[in-house]
Design a protein around this nucleic acid. Sequence first.
DNA 1: GATTTTATGGGACTAACGTACCATGAAGGC
DNA 2: GCCTTCATGGTACGTTAGTCCCATAAAATC
Lengths: 201, 201
Amino acid sequence: MSVPYERTGRIHQKARTRGALTDAARELLARGVPPTVEGAAAAAAVSRTTAYRYFPNRWALVAAAFPHVDEESLLGDDPTDDPLQRLETVAQALTSRVLTHEPEMRAVLKLSLEDIRPPELPMHRGLRVSWVEDALQPLARRLEAAELRRLAYGISATLGIEAFAWLTDIAQLSRDEAASVMRANASGLLESAMARIPAGR
Amino acid sequence: MSVPYERTGRIHQKARTRGALTDAARELLARGVPPTVEGAAAAAAVSRTTAYRYFPNRWALVAAAFPHVDEESLLGDDPTDDPLQRLETVAQALTSRVLTHEPEMRAVLKLSLEDIRPPELPMHRGLRVSWVEDALQPLARRLEAAELRRLAYGISATLGIEAFAWLTDIAQLSRDEAASVMRANASGLLESAMARIPAGR
DNA sequence: GATTTTATGGGACTAACGTACCATGAAGGC
DNA sequence: GCCTTCATGGTACGTTAGTCCCATAAAATC
């Protein structure tokens, strides 16, 4: 986020240039073309050199073009108390996000594996987990905190781009099959956790 | 596998050259460096041209260099018929593999996310899944084939380096916690699948 | 209006990936 | 010993990603 270069000097001009580049990258993404710094520069009528000044590599560019949503909750207006149903809603939302934003998410995933890790990534720690925790909220009194946390992490781990990438690239499932396996995993994990809850609680 | 070039002519010399290249690549992998054909050539004191004769691209090299492709099964001499116990054995083996070979696996993961999709990544394709399928084998008669396949993929997806990387890098779990969550996920998925089996079967 | 600052642009450069062509030198057969 | 086979090496070419240095033109400042 805080690139010193863009925080000093003629900030507004820089913001315009940067915006032009991310817009161009987004447009390329929308057309299914994996954007390159060079390509975005050309599309934005900005020189290659300048483009590289803003985005040192393509992953940084794609990550910046990532359409970021700041939704607090993925549950609708009238969420039930049924954890399973809540989780299914969240899982549906998460997998459909993966399906529609796959290129960006792959780019971010790749960035996250880089040796030099940018301090802040769109893929920060909380988002996915907090949505899942949100879904599991009705279980808060029936499970121990540690167990709940573990469950939330376990479920979240099955709902991400990295699982999707493995299922499609390596296991050779279709994109829809992969998404469906992910949702089934999420539900299955919750079911088995609930089955372990002592009757009294 | 059957590379015509290496099956004809001065086979032994070729085998030595190839071995030198894969050894070099393995060493790079062990250091967490995604090997390149060029780099392996240099490390093996073989000319670039020759190296490319053996491995037309880096994925072919990495595939050949990837360790431990040999084991047929992870179950010991005397496997039980209890699927859960079998799966726990496999999951234990897989997670401990991830723990000990993390750098190599991360390197391969990075490679697999490269823009140009590798046409074939033999080491990935079947191994993890087939080990899990092996563990699930006793269920073959109690589950439909499609359901079994889905379950095997779902479980496999939770037992890989990509899940581990997410759990440690993004969710900030310790390495041991991550491995433990992965194993719990695998068991949980199997339990919930078995709970759905009609009583009669 | 003149001067300084600075965002941008251009071009040269390195490095990696992959291909193609030709030279060389060692094995092996005779 | 000679000649053929053939594994290897060297050079060159084309592409993409990314870096670096220097020039320039447009703001900002005075």
